[in-house]
Amino acid sequence: MLIKGNDDGPLVAGELLLARPGFWSNYLLAMCSDGACAERPVPEWFGDDGADADALGEVLFDPEHWPVFRVPAEDGPGAVVIYRNLVGDYGTDYLLTHPGRTYAQQIASWEGDFSGIGLTWHELIHVADNPSSTAEGVQDTSARLLLVLPLLTDPDLPEAAPGRLTAALTVVGAPQNTASVTAEHLLAHLTRRSRHDPTWKSPLSGS
């Protein structure tokens, strides 16, 4: 599998992994630490258990296979998430794809912490809610939102944001009685580390 602009590793389509137990805790658990909660985040917050998380972690971080999750959009830029499994240099890269371009633009990465350019909540929702009907990739809007969620760098969230995130977590298997708390922890962490400057040009503009 090749993604133009990022063909240095053994990329493989990862979309089928989204339905595997342990995926969402691997992907989002580290972002549940908001600095104010004494409770340690656990895979059960996402409906997983430790064994599931460990087993899928071996798949996600395999140096010989770098899972790629495509989030193509019908109207405007889409996103690509790549597990960069270089030995000694593991990380998750976030790229944008733009209509009419032949390459993907890396805008951020996660290596124990976030670095790069993020998006506002409304920009994330635009990507999540506009799946492409023709391109290969993730179609479910809840999974799409959760995949691009680490790009959130917006301290001014709308009132509907926690509810929307709670609903998305429930759709992918988080327990209904704890999904809202998990959403609160995620948003607290993401907005606390936020560095979004309203004067910056959005990477969705193609600039």
Results as ranks from 00 to 15, higher is better:
residue 153 T to E: 15
residue 54 D to G: 04
residue 147 L to R: 00
residue 62 D to K: 08
residue 64 E to H: 12
residue 163 G to P: 07
residue 199 T to A: 11
residue 84 R to T: 08
residue 162 P to V: 07
residue 9 G to N: 06
residue 11 L to R: 09
residue 120 T to F: 00
residue 183 A to P: 02
residue 121 W to M: 02
residue 63 P to Q: 09
residue 130 N to A: 13
residue 144 R to V: 06
residue 126 H to P: 00
residue 172 V to R: 06
residue 52 D to Q: 15
residue 205 S to P: 03
residue 190 L to S: 09
residue 167 A to T: 12
residue 69 F to Q: 02
residue 120 T to A: 01
residue 73 A to V: 02
residue 1 M to N: 13
residue 186 L to I: 06
residue 146 L to K: 00
residue 99 P to K: 11
residue 35 G to Y: 10
residue 38 A to N: 04
residue 32 C to N: 02
residue 93 D to G: 14
residue 11 L to I: 06
residue 116 G to T: 11
residue 7 D to R: 10
residue 88 G to T: 05
residue 123 E to G: 01
residue 107 I to C: 08
residue 148 V to P: 00
residue 107 I to T: 11
residue 38 A to F: 07
residue 58 E to A: 15
residue 90 Y to M: 09
residue 17 L to Y: 12
residue 38 A to K: 06
residue 111 E to H: 01
residue 106 Q to L: 13
residue 104 A to T: 03
residue 58 E to R: 15
residue 7 D to C: 10
residue 110 W to L: 02
residue 8 D to V: 05
residue 170 T to K: 06
residue 5 G to Y: 12
residue 160 A to I: 13
residue 207 S to W: 11
residue 124 L to F: 01
residue 206 G to C: 13
residue 160 A to Q: 12
residue 188 A to V: 07
residue 44 E to I: 04
residue 117 I to F: 03
residue 69 F to K: 00
residue 62 D to F: 07
residue 155 P to Y: 13
residue 78 G to S: 02
residue 180 S to A: 15
residue 148 V to S: 00
